[in-house]
């Protein structure tokens, strides 16, 4: 069975999505990201690594091997007195062994740990990359859910979860194969919502203003604003542009380019029915940019 992936555009959004998935009872197999996401291993339930212990063991072996070898060479195999240093006694000759012993400890610890690291990560020259999408090494974050481990959920439920948690692209694939895109609009969302995900109910008012009259707002953004509870010019004029930005950015990267700085001002004019003034303003400011 193919694994299902959702692509996200933000590290914090994907952490939250993973959290929601786990809370809904799903098992998240993995998350692929272009940089380490702090704390996500705890959410998904992946144990911290024991590489440090391994480094300690390698280092300790290096220390013991280093000192005993030098002592054996200088004091036993070919006993030498150089510069009056008493090599026959390990303790009395020790200061001269410390530098190399230290270097050898670090050498063993560092390389031993590095080799373990490469083996555990299965990285070596010629190894095949297993990230599901090339964009996950750039600016995208892929959450992987394997239906095999989630027998209690239907595929649509899994897709629903991706959709409700902000994935902008959902696909399924096997390693090394082309992905099959699961069209976002082409599935029924009538299924049960994952248990703990609650979307705040916003009471729809009877009056809705045509927010598209504001320069910079198109039908898509109007829907977004309605969805966030901004229905009227009055509400929009009272909103802070930073709050609007929150709504826009949460909706995906393509909305990030929009600059809502002028929208509250424009909305204030519209609310006061100063259409001439608004038109004049809009003529002067193409695209609604200040």
């Amino acid at each position: 069975m193919k694994k299902i992936y959702g692509l996200y555009n933000d590290d914090e959004v994907v952490s939250l999505a993973a959290k929601q998935a786990v809370d809904s009872g799903l098992k998240v197999s993995d998350v692929y990201s272009p940089f380490p996401i702090h704390g996500i291993e705890k959410i998904v339930g992946i144990a911290w690594t024991r590489l440090a212990i391994c480094a300690f063991i390698f280092g300790l072996s290096g220390l013991i091997i280093g000192i005993s070898f030098m002592w054996w060479v200088m004091g036993i195999d070919w006993p030498m007195i150089i510069g009056g240093k008493p090599n026959f006694s390990l303790i009395e000759g020790l200061p001269a062994y410390i530098p190399i012993a230290f270097e050898f400890t670090v050498l063993c610890a560092a390389h031993g740990m590095a080799i373990t690291y490469f083996i555990r990560n299965w990285t070596f020259p010629g190894a095949v990359a297993r990230n599901p999408d090339p964009r996950t090494t750039d600016d995208c974050f892929a959450m992987e859910i394997d239906p095999i481990y989630n027998q209690n959920f239907t595929k649509n439920q899994i897709i629903d979860l991706f959709k409700t948690t902000g994935a902008f692209e959902i696909f399924e694939k096997n390693l090394g194969e082309e992905p099959t895109h699961l069209n976002l609009n082409n599935f029924s969302s009538s299924n049960v919502q994952p248990a703990n995900v609650i979307i705040p109910a916003i009471t729809e008012p009877t009056v809705k203003d045509a927010l598209v009259k504001i320069e910079g707002i198109g039908p898509k953004i109007q829907e977004l604003l309605y969805g966030a509870g901004i229905f009227t010019f009055k509400q929009l004029s009272e909103s802070k542009s930073s709050d609007i930005l929150v709504i826009l950015t949460a909706a995906g990267p393509r909305y990030r380019v929009h600059d809502p700085a002028s929208w509250p001002q424009q909305a204030a004019l519209a609310f006061e029915n100063k259409w001439d003034e608004l038109n004049k303003w809009q003529d002067e400011h193409k695209g609604g940019k200040l």
């Binding site: 510069g83 009056g84 240093k85 200061p95 001269a96 410390i98």
Partner: peptide, 12 residues
């Protein structure tokens, strides 16, 4: 501590 000790010990 070691730097001071070792250099003095070594040069004697």
């Amino acid at each position: 501590w070691f730097s001071q000790f070792m250099l003095i010990w070594y040069a004697n």
